[in-house]
């Protein structure tokens, strides 16, 4: 594991998460601790049900840990109430989902602008920036189209543009290629990698593919709820 860095964007300390199922406690996360730096690209690897999505939800403030503390950019999430966590997420985090989750009733450009508008910061410059993002993901000419007119790959490219539109410090991607064919998935990953790196964003990407994880700066492995850091070599072994 890397040494703790005081400049870290994310500090995960002893985070645990358990659920009560059928009267029994099921531990999903067990004392997870790590730090993630600004601009770092991290892959969160693990089998289905290993707790990857749970950790991602806790990182975004959608879900709360049972134990432990998460600090993002100096803000301890547990100290915020639900509304403030939502506002924090709105300003600082971009999301890319496995099932795209574009808003079907908004056009492509409106989808990209949505986080900007939620933050109440829509300006002509932001609109131009959104169009530029769309152009960069190769959909500059599809701004007026609605999501149901796009292919899966195109929808995910819009989702990437949306995740970056409000200039968040952190982008969370939950198996962003899980619903795409290999070739399209590769293109989307390349795009996500390029755009977050170019923008200097921190990217945490959940995947169960070692090939995809290989693109990241660091690989965190979730095994039976425990967070373990591996090198790529170890993972491949």
């Amino acid at each position: 594991m890397k040494q703790p860095n005081t400049q870290a964007l994310i500090d995960i300390r002893n985070v645990g998460k358990s659920f009560i199922e059928g009267g029994h406690e099921r531990i999903v996360l067990h004392q997870a601790s790590t730090q993630i730096q600004r601009g770092e690209s991290v892959a969160l690897l693990g089998r289905s049900g290993s707790g990857k999505s749970t950790l991602l939800n806790i990182l975004s403030g959608i879900d709360a840990p049972t134990t432990g503390v998460i600090t993002i950019d100096g803000v301890a999430l547990h100290s915020l109430n639900e509304r403030d966590r939502t506002l924090f997420r709105r300003r600082n985090i971009g999301f890319v989902f496995q099932f795209f989750n574009l808003i079907p009733t908004l056009s492509v450009e409106e989808n990209v602008l949505l986080p900007v508008e939620l933050n109440g910061t829509v300006t002509a410059a932001k609109r131009d920036a959104a169009r530029e993002l769309l152009r960069r993901v190769g959909l500059g000419d599809r701004g007026a189209a609605f999501p149901d007119k796009l292919s899966g790959g195109e929808q995910q490219r819009v989702a990437i543009a949306r995740a970056l539109a409000h200039d968040p410090a952190l982008v969370l991607a939950d198996e962003p290629t899980g619903n795409l064919d290999a070739a399209t998935g590769e293109q989307v990953l390349q795009l996500l990698d390029d755009m977050t790196r170019q923008a200097g964003k921190t990217l945490i990407m959940v995947t169960h593919s070692t090939a995809i994880a290989a693109r990241a700066d660091r690989i965190l492995h979730l095994e039976d709820g425990r967070l373990v850091e591996h090198s790529l070599l170890e993972v491949n072994e």
Partner: peptide, 14 residues
């Protein structure tokens, strides 16, 4: 799903 997505994107309960 839509409301879930909106909530994930930072739309408040209110």
């Amino acid at each position: 799903t839509l409301f879930g997505t909106l909530r994930s994107l930072g739309v408040t309960r209110g």
